[in-house]
Simulated scan of single mutants.
Amino acid sequence: MAPRRSRLQTGLMAERVTVVTFPGVQSLDVTGPWEVLAGANRYRTARGKRPAYDLRLAGTEPEVATESGLVMVADALGEPVRAGTLVVPGGRTAAAEDQHADLVAWLEACRPTRLLSICSGAFLCARAGLVSGRRVATHWSVSRDLGRRFSDITVDHDALYVHDGPVWTSGGVTSGIDLALAVVAADHGAPVAQEIARWLVMFLHRPGHQAQFSGPVWLERATEKRVAAAQRAIDADPAATHRVDDLAAQLAMSPRHFQRLFARETGLTVGRYLTELRLETAKRLLVQSDLALDTVAAKAGFGSAESLRRVFGERLGTTPGAFRARFSTL
């Protein structure tokens, strides 16, 4: 899929945007981006300009029941998309290898100017060969599976959304709104996207490199009693040392057995779990307090502001100061 200048970008007419739908689609994957793009149209028409996007909902059936039971009325898929923007949402069945063969066959014939994949829609796009050679995002719960099944793509497991040439892909569900805001910003400038975000009562939109979820609630919770006890001890004091030998001794286990059991129960090594927890603790302190950076680093367990800056740069692609400026609740 070679990048081309769209008719929108040349200013001649509205960009045709085809949003596909199918039985079991996640309704927010459809309506979230749709409302953002429709908001751009309202913004422009209120200022005497032509609408930016010609929106069309196309489905594999005339009436499509979403995974929550909401019914959407759609046009037939029709001819494959050969220009404009194609939006492929996800849903509970999108990742299934034995589902949606007709839709995938139709997608294989599409050659859009720009592709937007929302959530697990990345599986449908990958099956159709639309994201081959690209870096992509998808819902955090299925990102590992996506990478295992499709060796021709690079999965960014943490990103809220990813922009790689003409391909834009988002993480879980509501991040499709963030992706659509980024598209509007690219097409019409940040002030337009910010105005739409205000209408939708959102942050002025989140950067793509922000992680999809926060801990420790989203960190896998152990069911094995001893590992669960170790988790609670770590969660209660992220700034403590938490040496593997000490944790294992407290549970009357060998360090090697404890590490294997912890990884099996949580999906993370003790060191990685601690880093994730400390990062989320630092993020919370940055947005909910005005503590100095050195104090935030100490309370979160990073030891120094320099260490905190390094981890933020490596994991989030930003600085603690920039993160605070964007997301502070004070």
Score class of each variant (00 low, 15 high):
20 V>F: 04
22 F>H: 01
23 P>M: 00
31 T>N: 10
31 T>E: 10
38 A>C: 10
46 A>K: 08
47 R>L: 12
48 G>H: 11
49 K>Q: 15
53 Y>S: 03
55 L>A: 05
56 R>W: 12
57 L>H: 12
57 L>D: 11
58 A>L: 06
64 V>K: 05
67 E>N: 10
67 E>P: 04
68 S>K: 02
69 G>T: 06
72 M>I: 13
72 M>E: 00
73 V>W: 00
75 D>V: 03
76 A>D: 08
78 G>L: 07
81 V>W: 02
86 L>P: 05
90 G>Y: 02
91 G>V: 07
94 A>S: 11
95 A>M: 08
97 E>V: 10
99 Q>G: 00
100 H>V: 01
103 L>S: 05
105 A>S: 15
105 A>N: 13
105 A>E: 15
109 A>V: 05
112 P>R: 00
128 A>E: 13
130 L>E: 06
130 L>T: 06
131 V>A: 03
133 G>K: 10
138 T>Y: 02
139 H>C: 04
141 S>C: 06
146 L>D: 09
148 R>P: 00
149 R>P: 07
150 F>A: 03
151 S>T: 15
152 D>R: 03
157 H>Q: 13
157 H>P: 08
162 V>S: 07
165 G>M: 03
171 G>Q: 15
172 G>L: 09
174 T>A: 06
175 S>A: 15
180 A>Q: 07
181 L>Y: 06
182 A>V: 04
185 A>E: 09
189 G>L: 12
190 A>T: 15
192 V>P: 14
194 Q>W: 04
194 Q>P: 02
195 E>S: 12
196 I>F: 12
197 A>I: 05
200 L>P: 06
204 L>C: 05
205 H>N: 12
210 Q>P: 00
211 A>S: 02
215 G>T: 07
216 P>C: 14
220 E>L: 02
221 R>A: 15
221 R>Y: 03
227 V>D: 02
242 H>G: 05
249 A>R: 14
252 A>K: 08
252 A>S: 10
257 H>D: 14
258 F>T: 08
261 L>M: 07
261 L>E: 05
261 L>K: 08
268 L>T: 01
270 V>S: 06
273 Y>V: 00
273 Y>H: 09
276 E>Y: 13
279 L>K: 04
288 Q>K: 07
293 L>C: 05
294 D>C: 04
295 T>H: 13
297 A>Q: 05
301 G>D: 12
302 F>H: 12
304 S>V: 05
308 L>D: 12
309 R>A: 12
312 F>V: 01
312 F>W: 08
313 G>F: 09
313 G>K: 11
314 E>V: 13
314 E>L: 14
315 R>D: 13
315 R>A: 15
315 R>C: 11
318 T>R: 07
321 G>A: 10
323 F>P: 05
324 R>V: 02
324 R>P: 06
324 R>I: 02
326 R>L: 11
327 F>N: 15
328 S>Y: 04
328 S>V: 14
328 S>L: 03
329 T>L: 12
329 T>N: 11
